[in-house]
Design a protein around this nucleic acid. Structure first.
Lengths: 170, 170
DNA sequence: CTATTTAGTTCCTTTTTGGAACTCTAAGTG
DNA sequence: CACTTAGAGTTCCAAAAAGGAACTAAATAG
């Protein structure tokens, strides 16, 4: 399968990656959450090639994750801002960053520390269930195929009773 | 900058992407969480080229995200399983999938539905603070540079007082 | 002896990236 | 006016990565 056909797959991860799974895209978005908005600034911070940056920003705008807004006329200069759709990537990005903090830091520790604003304490991400509020680990979530699509999904047997699917001891 | 130098950056997102930011890697990991373990199965489900799959699995094992375990001798056949490090990607993956469910689904709705095991209700991911338990949105998290690395990070001014950094109205 | 299963590897073509230079619009400077 | 600067790109070419298909290897089944 070609990468460019990913967005046709009946899989939300595939479709998500069709939007944000390109090389550099998540780094661009991380910088958006840090307040970066302008082409030159992304380029110098990321060290990304200019035409790749141009391409990524254009695709993110097309997808609706960023919007382009003029911050001056004559000459027209535009900046990129997160839309609501983009802002909703925040939990995923926070978890990815904190996974890196935890597993990939060097002796200095995490490069950036998150703070829970208005609380003073460190912010550490935790996954909970919106319905009942409980903390949720990998073992607490199960999947059910959408009946309309079940046949296409071709899940492994274990996954139809996923309680043991990914378990260590298996 | 070259992609292969990413893991040297003083940034947890960069380092995380150096491990899981390659094309196909997150799809492989999604399948791991769905219970897929074997080469042939990944290959047929993903439609990925065999040598790319081989390369990705090898890198994930080297990074410590997956481990290779023989499930039979004569001939030796090995399968891939999530390590603890890999299992801890679960929250990030859940959020990415649910972002796709929300923003990129077609008429049929989400291909897979998550269920909170033992509760019967639908599982919808929510980001909370591990310290105080409160639900946390993009506006509630702020960053502070690790003093040891602050100079290298080169954050934009807004980000040093990040309350307005990414705000829509700006 | 031949076919099948599983997990790869090899070879070659097509696509994507990386690097560097160039373009365009308008403002500021002497 | 000519000259330089700023910001946001575009163009061109070489290098790296991905796609496609066939091939290898080890053991078992018929």
């Amino acid at each position: 399968m070609r990468w460019q056909d990913l967005d046709q797959e009946p899989c939300s991860m595939a479709r998500t990656l069709a939007v944000i799974g390109d090389r550099w895209t998540l780094l661009i978005l991380r910088d958006c959450f840090l307040g970066v908005r302008r082409f030159e600034r992304f380029q110098e911070r990321l060290g990304i090639t200019r035409h790749v940056l141009s391409d990524r920003l254009r695709k993110l705008v097309e997808a609706g994750v960023l919007e382009k807004r003029a911050y001056q006329e004559r000459p027209v200069r535009e900046e990129y801002r997160l839309t609501t759709m983009g802002l909703e990537l925040h939990p995923a990005i926070i978890h990815l960053v904190q996974w890196g903090d935890r597993w990939l830091s060097d002796d200095h520790g995490a490069p950036l520390q998150h703070v829970h604003r208005g609380h003073g304490h460190r912010f550490q991400a935790q996954l909970t269930c919106a319905d009942c509020g409980e903390v949720v680990g990998p073992r607490d979530v199960t999947v059910v195929a959408n009946p309309a699509l079940a046949r296409q999904l071709d899940l492994p047997d274990e996954s139809r009773s996923p309680d043991t699917a990914w378990r260590q001891g298996g």
